[in-house]
C-alpha cells in the first residue's frame, strides 16, 4: 500500500507515527518518573512503626498513626452520609422517574454541576455551612459531611449505571408475579445492581481520600489522635501538604506519606477496574 502514496503523503504518515509514539512515550516516561521518585524516596521510611506512631516535631519525625485514624474517621462519616443519599437518589433516577420528567432532569442537571464544582469551593461552603452555621467547628464531622457532598455525584452516577444494567425482564417478571415495587427493589434489583454500587463506592472513596482543598477549612490541621467526631483531625493528604509547604526538613516523611497515599489509591483503582471488567460483566452474562 505504501508505494501507492505520493511523497508528501508518505512523509505525513511517517510524521504522525513519530508524533503518536512520541506522545505515548512521553506520558509513560513522566508517569514512571513521578511514581519512581515517590517510591524511591519513600520506601525506606515506610515501616510498621511509621504507620502507627504519632508524628513528632511537627511531623519531621515519628509516624502517621493519628493521621491515618483521622483519615478513616473522615472517610467513615463521609460514607455513612453519602451512601444512603446516593443510593436513594440513584434508585429514584433509574427506577422511579422517566428520563423526561422535570424532577429527574433538574436533579440530574444539578448533580452534573455539583460534579464540576472545584474542591476549594466545597471547602468554602463546608466552612460556612457545617463549621459556622451548624456550629460543628473545625471537626472530623464537618470534614466528612463536606466530602459527602463532594462524592455524591460520583456515587450516584455509577450506582445509577448499575441499576440500568439490570435487564428489564427482571422488572417485568416481578410485576407479572404481582410483587410490590418495594419487594422487587430490595430482593431483585438491589442485589443485581451491587457491582455498579461497588464501583461507585470505590470511586467515591478514592475521591475522598485524595481530597485536600475541601478539608483544610473544615476538618483542620490538628495532628493529635482524635477523641471524638467533633475533634479536629488531619487527613493524610493535608499532612503531605503541610510537611512539604510549612515544615522545613519534612520531605522524607512527606515522601513516605505520599507513598502510602499512592498505594491506597492504586489499590482502589485496581479494585475498580477489576470490578468493572469482571464483576459487572459476569453479572450481566449470567442472565
Amino acid at each position: 500500500m505504501a508505494e501507492t502514496l505520493s511523497r508528501p503523503q508518505n512523509l505525513r504518515e511517517w510524521l504522525a507515527f513519530v508524533l503518536v509514539w512520541g506522545a505515548a512515550g512521553l506520558v509513560t516516561a513522566v508517569f514512571c518518573w513521578l511514581l519512581g521518585d515517590i517510591v524511591w524516596h519513600g520506601i525506606g521510611h515506610v515501616s510498621w512503626t511509621f504507620l502507627t506512631a504519632p508524628p513528632e516535631n511537627a511531623g519531621r519525625q515519628g509516624g502517621i498513626g493519628p493521621i491515618l485514624a483521622s483519615t478513616s474517621l473522615i472517610l467513615g462519616v463521609c460514607l455513612a452520609v453519602s451512601l444512603p443519599i446516593g443510593i436513594g437518589t440513584a434508585v429514584l433516577l433509574a427506577e422511579f422517574t422517566s428520563d423526561q420528567s422535570l424532577f429527574g432532569r433538574i436533579t440530574r442537571r444539578s448533580l452534573d454541576i455539583l460534579a464540576g464544582v472545584p474542591s476549594i469551593v466545597f471547602g468554602l461552603f463546608g466552612n460556612a455551612f457545617f463549621c459556622k452555621m451548624l456550629g460543628l467547628g473545625f471537626s472530623i464531622l464537618s470534614g466528612g459531611l463536606t466530602l459527602a457532598c463532594m462524592v455524591l455525584p460520583v456515587l450516584i452516577r455509577s450506582t445509577e449505571e448499575g441499576f440500568r444494567a439490570v435487564p428489564a425482564s427482571y422488572r417485568l417478571s416481578a410485576a407479572a408475579l404481582g410483587l410490590s415495587r418495594t419487594t422487587t427493589l430490595i430482593h431483585l434489583l438491589l442485589p443485581a445492581a451491587v457491582p455498579g454500587l461497588l464501583v461507585g463506592l470505590v470511586l467515591g472513596v478514592g475521591r475522598a481520600i485524595a481530597e485536600t482543598a475541601a478539608l483544610i477549612f473544615t476538618s483542620g490541621y490538628v495532628d493529635r489522635m482524635p477523641e471524638s467526631l467533633l475533634d479536629s483531625g488531619r487527613a493524610l493528604s493535608i499532612h503531605i501538604f503541610d510537611l512539604s509547604m510549612n515544615v522545613s526538613g519534612g520531605d522524607t516523611n512527606a515522601y513516605a506519606s505520599a507513598l502510602i497515599l499512592v498505594i491506597m489509591l492504586l489499590a482502589i483503582n485496581g479494585t475498580v477496574s477489576w470490578l468493572a471488567t469482571y464483576g459487572l460483566h459476569r453479572k450481566i452474562m449470567t442472565v
Partner: peptide
C-alpha cells in the same frame, strides 16, 4: 410503594439541593 417513592423523592431532593445550598451560602 407509595411510601418508598416519596421517601426516595425526599432523599433525591437533598442531593439535588446541595448545589443550591452552595450557591446560596457563597
Amino acid at each position: 410503594d407509595e411510601l418508598l417513592c416519596w421517601s426516595l423523592r425526599g432523599i433525591a431532593t437533598i442531593a439535588g439541593t446541595i448545589v443550591m445550598l452552595i450557591v446560596v451560602f457563597l
